[in-house]
Amino acid sequence: MTPRRKSSLLWGVVGALAFLALVQGYRLLVESLTVSAAVFGAVALLVGATAAGVTYVLEPRIHGNGRS
């Protein structure tokens, strides 16, 4: 696995876990959530995949000239 791919996947994990932490905090403050945990899990996977994809695409621009 290339360092670029590994970095992107790790940022995806960070994004998904950050979303789940925000959901947990929201659920602690607002008790009347009618959305199931499966929906939150699906959205967390979507957030993680988006974060991984965006970091994979933008990493060469951030580092310059495609060097990692």
Rank of each mutant, 00 (worst) to 15 (best):
G53P: 02
G48M: 07
E59S: 11
T50R: 03
R27W: 04
A38W: 07
F40Y: 15
L45G: 15
R4Y: 01
G48L: 07
G12S: 03
Y26L: 13
R4H: 10
V30F: 13
W11C: 03
A49I: 10
A49F: 14
L45A: 15
A16N: 07
Q24E: 15
F19E: 02
S36A: 13
T50K: 02
S68H: 02
F40P: 06
F40H: 15
R4K: 11
V43A: 08
F19T: 02
R4Q: 08
R67L: 10
S32D: 11
A21N: 01
F40G: 06
A49G: 15
L46C: 08
G41E: 08
E31W: 04
M1F: 00
G53A: 08
L28Q: 15
L29T: 12
M1R: 00
L9I: 12
N65F: 01
G12R: 01
G53F: 08
V23L: 13
L45K: 11
G15Y: 02
A52G: 10
K6I: 07
G48V: 06
V54R: 05
L33D: 12
V57L: 14
T2E: 01
S68P: 00
V23K: 09
Q24F: 15
A49L: 15
S7L: 15
S68F: 08
V39K: 13
T34S: 09
L17G: 05
A52K: 03
Y26F: 14
E59A: 12
S8M: 09
L46T: 09
A21D: 02
V13M: 14
L46D: 05
V14D: 03
A16R: 05
V14Q: 05
A37R: 11
G48F: 10
N65D: 05
S32R: 12
V23G: 05
A52H: 06
A44T: 07
A44M: 10
